[in-house]
Amino acid sequence: MAKIRGSIVVEIDRCKGCEVCMVSCPTGTIAMAKEVNHKGYFYAYPAHPELCIGCANCAMVCPDGVITVYKTKI
Protein backbone atom coordinates (compact mmCIF):
# COMPACT_ATOMS: atom_id res chain seq x y z
CA MET A 1 0.00 0.00 0.00
CA ALA A 2 1.29 3.37 -0.91
CA LYS A 3 2.07 5.37 2.16
CA ILE A 4 1.32 9.05 2.23
CA ARG A 5 4.03 11.18 3.73
CA GLY A 6 3.84 14.87 4.38
CA SER A 7 6.04 17.62 5.61
CA ILE A 8 5.49 21.14 6.87
CA VAL A 9 7.68 24.22 6.84
CA VAL A 10 6.97 26.91 9.42
CA GLU A 11 8.08 30.49 8.86
CA ILE A 12 9.45 30.86 12.36
CA ASP A 13 9.73 34.64 12.43
CA ARG A 14 6.08 35.18 11.46
CA CYS A 15 4.66 32.59 13.89
CA LYS A 16 2.83 34.08 16.89
CA GLY A 17 2.68 30.87 18.91
CA CYS A 18 -1.12 30.70 19.25
CA GLU A 19 -1.04 26.86 19.37
CA VAL A 20 -4.14 26.55 17.20
CA CYS A 21 -2.19 24.40 14.70
CA MET A 22 -0.98 22.14 17.48
CA VAL A 23 -4.50 21.24 18.64
CA SER A 24 -5.82 20.78 15.11
CA CYS A 25 -3.05 18.38 14.02
CA PRO A 26 -4.61 14.89 13.87
CA THR A 27 -1.29 13.06 14.29
CA GLY A 28 0.43 15.16 16.93
CA THR A 29 3.23 16.25 14.62
CA ILE A 30 3.41 19.84 15.78
CA ALA A 31 4.71 21.07 19.12
CA MET A 32 5.71 24.46 20.44
CA ALA A 33 9.42 25.21 20.63
CA LYS A 34 11.14 25.74 23.98
CA GLU A 35 12.87 28.81 22.59
CA VAL A 36 11.37 32.02 21.22
CA ASN A 37 11.56 33.71 17.85
CA HIS A 38 12.74 37.29 17.42
CA LYS A 39 9.31 38.63 18.44
CA GLY A 40 9.35 36.61 21.66
CA TYR A 41 6.77 33.98 20.77
CA PHE A 42 7.22 30.24 21.35
CA TYR A 43 6.92 29.23 17.73
CA ALA A 44 5.41 26.02 16.34
CA TYR A 45 7.66 23.42 14.74
CA PRO A 46 7.25 19.84 13.49
CA ALA A 47 8.47 17.93 16.55
CA HIS A 48 7.64 14.53 15.05
CA PRO A 49 8.05 15.08 11.30
CA GLU A 50 7.78 11.36 10.56
CA LEU A 51 4.11 11.42 11.67
CA CYS A 52 3.02 14.14 9.23
CA ILE A 53 0.46 13.04 6.63
CA GLY A 54 0.26 16.36 4.77
CA CYS A 55 -3.43 16.96 5.53
CA ALA A 56 -2.88 20.75 5.65
CA ASN A 57 -5.17 21.16 8.67
CA CYS A 58 -2.52 23.20 10.45
CA ALA A 59 -2.09 25.48 7.46
CA MET A 60 -5.85 25.92 7.12
CA VAL A 61 -6.31 27.19 10.67
CA CYS A 62 -3.09 29.18 10.99
CA PRO A 63 -4.25 32.80 11.41
CA ASP A 64 -0.95 34.14 10.13
CA GLY A 65 -0.53 31.74 7.21
CA VAL A 66 2.98 30.74 8.21
CA ILE A 67 2.75 27.02 7.36
CA THR A 68 3.57 25.54 3.97
CA VAL A 69 2.58 21.90 3.41
CA TYR A 70 4.11 19.29 1.11
CA LYS A 71 2.76 15.81 0.48
CA THR A 72 3.90 12.77 -1.51
CA LYS A 73 3.22 9.05 -1.89
CA ILE A 74 6.02 6.67 -1.06
Binding site: R5, G6, S7, A56, T68, Y70, T72
Partner: peptide, 10 residues
Amino acid sequence: IIKPENLVYR
Protein backbone atom coordinates in the same frame (compact mmCIF):
# COMPACT_ATOMS: atom_id res chain seq x y z
CA ILE B 1 9.27 15.57 0.39
CA ILE B 2 9.91 19.32 0.43
CA LYS B 3 9.90 19.91 -3.31
CA PRO B 4 7.82 22.31 -5.38
CA GLU B 5 5.97 19.45 -7.13
CA ASN B 6 4.78 18.07 -3.77
CA LEU B 7 3.36 21.40 -2.61
CA VAL B 8 -0.15 21.07 -1.16
CA TYR B 9 -0.71 24.35 0.56
CA ARG B 10 1.00 27.67 0.88
